[in-house]
Structure formats: C-alpha cells, structure tokens
Amino acid sequence: MPSYADGLREGFNYLMENYREVFVIGQGLWSPWYVGSSMTDLDKKFGKARVIDTPVCEAATTGVAIGASLCGYRPIVVHPRMDFMILATDQIVNQAAKWNHMLGGQMSPRVTIRGIVNRGGEQGAQHSQALHSWYAHIPGLRVVMPATPVDARNLLIASTLCDDPVLFIDDRWCYEWEAPFGPIDLTPLSKIEPQVLIEGQDITLVGASYSTKLCYDAAQTVGKMGISAEVIDLRVVNPLKLDRVLKSVSKTGRLLVVDGSWENCGLAGEVIAQICQRMPLEELKCNPQRMTLPSAPAPTSKYLEQQYYPKEKDVVDRVKEMVAGGRKQ
C-alpha cells in the first residue's frame, strides 16, 4: 500500500510530467535523504535544471522562486526543515502573501513553499518546530497541512496549481501512514474543505497533519470502548473553513482539537473560538478542549521528549474524560 511519502513523490512526478512551468528548488535536492523518500530520483528523472539544489540561502531561494512565479512559472520551494524557513519569512509574509493585494490584484505569486516539520529523535529546539499558526495568521497566504497519503499527493498538486502563494506543510511523522490511493483529484485548492475521516456521534476530534493521525488512531481505540468519535481533518488552515466542524459539533456536542504546536494564539484556540462564536453554547455537553504542546521549546533529552509530544494515549484519555462528563469547567 502506498505511503504518505509515496504520495508526495507521486505528486511531484505528476506535476513535473504534466506542467512545464513547474520546477523545484531548495537545499538538499540532489541528495534527497534530507526529505525522506518524498523526492527520491526527481533530479535524475527531470534534470538538474528543473530540480535545483541551492546554496545555503533560505531567503534568496524563496525570493528567487517568488520572482520566477511572477514571470509565468510555478515553482515549489523546499525547506527541509521549517525552522530554517524562518529565514525566508520576509519573502513569505511581506512579499508573496501581499503581492496580489498591494498591487491591485493584478499579479499573484504562483509559488508553493514546502516547509517540512521534522522532529523527535532528540533533535532539540531548533530542529523540531511546527509553525503553521504563525503563517496561518497572514491574509493572502494559503496554508495547507495534508494528513493522509492521498492528500499528500492531491494537495501538493492542488497547491502547485493554485494561483495564490501556498505554504504546504508536511510532517515527517506522517510519512509512514499507508492507505490506498484513488485517481488524482484535481479539485482546486480554493474548493478544498475539511473532511470527515471517521463518522461518529459522541465527540468531534479535529486535527491537521500529524495530529489528524493521532485523532484517527484514538478514534479507533475509543471505538472499541464504545465511544463513537467523529474525526475531522482540517487540511487547509488558512483560509480556515469550519462549516463541517460546526455541523459535527452541533451533532456531537463535544469538541477536542489536537494541534502539534503551541497553545497561545494557536490553531486549536482559533478553531474552538470560531465554533463557540457560531453555535449556541448550551448545545455543548462539555467545554471544548484543546491538546497542544506544552509552552516550552522542544527538549532534546528523550526522557523529556516523551512527555513533550501528545500521543494517541493522551488523546484517548482526554476523550474518555470528556465523554464521561469531566472537564466541564
């Protein structure tokens, strides 16, 4: 069965085979162990002129891609670690995200910026970050976080073919997830909505990227205990479209959002706030909850790392507590 990493690779292959205007640029692309098996042999298949390995210059590389996107191309910039992508934030936030609006809607950077979350394994504070909430704050920047193998492929394609700048975030903890692929789905990114992965009645679990996988696994575990959890994968976190989540919470009366980043001003809080604004609070059977990282940089020691990242069991325990009537206040 194909994996998430296979999905990414298939997406790249499809794009490069079918769209001459697509090229890929970033560090490590001629030695792609940097990015797991998600880009293996792309340089051999499509040539080093279209799969460009760069000097160590995150800002210029991103700017170069944006510049080329203003001249008819659809580049995909690869940042093998999101932590290093911070150096390109001027280009992402000040340039790509604003170009269309500040120049009167006349030209939009058709660039996809792939930021990879690569953590665990005692990599420490600067090799572990998931910064989607920062970027999702910015109008004009679409932020995509595929969770499933088929979405890894389809959303990479949709992002690259989108006429707006897109930050495409994939988490290497997702790479081993295996699931069957259907045919390629060419739904435009602007029409992509959150999807229900598992239907349920008792509680709504919301995730994005790897946290969707945690919700998915937890839902299956609690299912064996007689709790019916509905799992919703957000897929796109900016612009955030929560109609499907609202519908689900209106049915279940319980909401747990799991987010692989920090709590303050984060994605989980935004989902909860919007849902609370949009539905009668008396329909909630318990207070909405969020599960995020502790408010601390990622530790290095594996002993601390064990405590730092939420695991399936943590989600299961929280679900049981919420359904049993706990955490009311």
Binding site: A60, V64, I66, G67, A68, S69, C71, P75
Partner: peptide, 15 residues
C-alpha cells in the same frame, strides 16, 4: 527584498 525577486525573474528568463 526585491533583489532576490529579480534574480528569480532572471532564472525564469533562462527557462
């Protein structure tokens, strides 16, 4: 900021 954008526009010109 626009310096790297112009380099990208130049890369596009070579394509």
């Amino acid at each position: 900021a626009t310096i790297s954008l112009s380099v990208g526009a130049a890369l596009a010109a070579t394509f």
